[in-house]
């Protein structure tokens, strides 16, 4: 069966959920092989095998931590050059997209970024992308070389297909460090107790209407009641009320959860670009003409400081 390379996104050996989604999608196209860069492959191998990685190619070298993006480019290009996969899948984040583009150029192969779905077509993978702030749906395919595709989080639900992977160490020849960006320091973001934005089934977001950093406690309480991640609009982030890592939208994180609850958010096009493909959308806004209501499956025209605490109280009452 055709081999599909999947670049593993991990934090110190803990495989992130989008990688499991990639492995699941890769199985529609062929037999997934994971490419793991870093020192903690042992702890990742089990998880990768559980989601169907028949092989794990391990690249463990100092360059992996010292240089930005280019070690992964060198690794994928050399592995693909030698094994001849039918496609290469990477996560759609800045590192993944930049790696994908450079690998594709070196392999003289077509690139598709930000796919939200992949199916097997007669002439290779067929992708679906969302365009123009998710108002359009585009299907595309690669016409030259080995299709290189980056996939957005939540494109598929991870499905286990356990195998015991064959682990293969790779000696990669790295390009000159002078043509690369050096990593001076690397600080992994603290993982809080709440789910990550890209991994959550439910996201509860607050905007300018939350009106202050301390008021975000209202949003957090709803999130914790629903087991959700917390998001924020750029207006709330720019005001310094919530960290940028929680920004949803064109220049923040693009999410596609089962449920997106927007409170005190007007629904500007750049915000919609990051949440419009959510399955169910709920809005709480005191302005009945707010554009967010055009997207909402359920909307409450009202003051979020009245509606949200009552929501939490009612859910807790129903549970007890």
């Amino acid at each position: 069966m055709a081999e599909i390379l999947v670049l593993v996104d991990h934090t110190e050996g803990v495989v992130r959920k989008p990688t499991l989604e990639l492995l699941t999608l890769a199985r529609r196209l062929g037999e997934p092989s994971a490419v793991f860069l870093g020192h903690d492959a042992d702890s990742a191998t089990e998880a990768l095998g559980r989601y169907g990685a028949h092989k794990v190619y391990v690249v463990d070298a100092p360059e992996v931590d010292e240089l930005l993006v280019t070690p992964a480019v060198d690794a994928l290009t050399q592995i693909a050059g030698s094994t001849g996969p039918a496609a290469i899948l990477l996560p759609s984040n800045p590192d993944g997209k930049e790696t994908a583009a450079r690998v594709a150029l070196r392999l003289e192969s077509g690139l598709i970024t930000d796919a939200v779905d992949i199916t097997a077509g007669e002439d290779g993978p067929v992708t679906e992308q969302s365009a123009f702030a998710a108002t359009y749906q585009v299907t595309a395919h690669v016409t030259r070389g080995i299709p290189v595709i980056t996939v957005k989080p939540n494109a598929a639900a991870p499905e286990p297909a356990p195998v015991t992977p064959e682990v293969e160490k790779w000696d990669v020849t790295f390009g000159p460090a002078s043509a690369a960006a050096k990593v001076l320091s690397h600080s992994p973001r603290e993982r809080g107790d709440r789910p990550e934005l890209t991994e959550a089934d439910i996201v509860v977001s607050g905007g300018r209407g939350v009106n202050g950093a301390e008021n975000f406690a209202v949003i957090e309480r709803v999130a914790d009641t629903l087991g959700a991640a917390v998001g924020a609009s750029r207006a709330a982030v720019d005001a310094g009320w919530y960290p940028h890592s929680h920004q949803v939208g064109q220049t923040g994180t693009q999410v596609s959860p089962q449920l997106y609850l927007a409170a005190g958010i007007s629904g500007a096009i750049q915000h919609r670009a990051g949440m419009q493909t959510s399955k169910t959308i709920v809005a709480v806004n005191k302005d009945q003409d707010a554009p967010i209501f055009e997207l909402a499956d359920y909307g409450v025209v009202g003051d979020l400081f009245q509606v949200l605490p009552q929501l939490v109280e009612e859910i807790e009452r129903r549970r007890s």
């Binding site: 499956d297 359920y298 909307g299 409450v300 025209v301 009245q306 509606v307 605490p309 009552q310 929501l311």
Partner: peptide, 17 residues
Amino acid sequence: GEIVTDDGTGGTGLAAF
């Protein structure tokens, strides 16, 4: 979707949804 105006029960209605 269904858009309701809060009449004092907006939160309970949302919880039901």
